[in-house]
Amino acid sequence: MPTTTAAAMGAAQRRVAGPSLARRIEANPFTWLVPVAVMLGVFYLYPILDVFRLGLTNASLVGSDERYTIVTLQAMFENPALLDILKTTAVFTIASVVGQQAFGLAIALLVMRGERRKLKGMVALRTLVLVAWVIPGIANGLIWQMLFSEAPFGAINSVLRMMHVSPVAWLSDPNIAMLSAVISNVWRGTAFSMIVFYAALKAIDPTLYEAASVDGAGHLQKLRFITLPQLRAAILVNSILVTIQTLNTFDAIISLTGGGPGRATEVLSLFTFNTVFRNYDLAGGSVLSVLMLVISLVLALFYASFMPRREVSE
């Protein structure tokens, strides 16, 4: 059997020469992780470290003598506006996260129900919701600015007038302006939550619902005792993602209210943007960026602590 002999000789030679390149790479994952590590290091880690460094300087877009100091750190945390901005950020974030998840879940349930009943137009409904998601933040802000306009020809107020309802100060009243900002953000972000929940709902074993029906459970009972517990992981993951996304939202607010009236809708991300690009305070903006990073991490860890743990046997 010459072929078998040749193959055996080749294998023996490879054993003498050592493992193949593919096998060596497989045996040593560090080698193939290096490109990813370098990419992440250069494009993610280095900027983060540089932001930490800049936060400990007096760097500005205007000045030239950069030196290390804790004065910036002190000035940012002693800024009397910071507390109000953090409160505004908290209200905006909590309302947006709750709103986006509630509407996202409602639409996902609606789509699932429609699909179960084989109703037409469910794909169109999903697509329609997604349209809002792909609209850039600035455009989203401008669209809602036109809708909320308090001018006599403002869209929503004109409809209210036709219905003999008093027009609403959507953007000029500080309290209502926050509600308007939340509505515009929820409108845009709901689609993302809908996709996450739709995927999670698809993964729920239908026999659970069948068994519940046999036991005589109603719709609300099924939602409470089957759907929501089964969606727990999806809700928590979605909460992390939506929270981080909302904390970073400033483009929609800047074009909707600019942060006003006064500071009524100025969230931390917008305050950071203003600090760097309007006040030219690079160091101050870096301190605020680090603060945003810390808040995001703490909230992510908080949510993660509620994540269902995998069993050891799994």
Partner: peptide, 28 residues
Amino acid sequence: GDVLSGTKTPEAALDAANTAVQAAFARL
């Protein structure tokens, strides 16, 4: 914004503005 929306009196708004501006000026 604070004055026109009635959130602050002109005096209080001016004081808040001045405090912020002076703090920023000290860091320049």
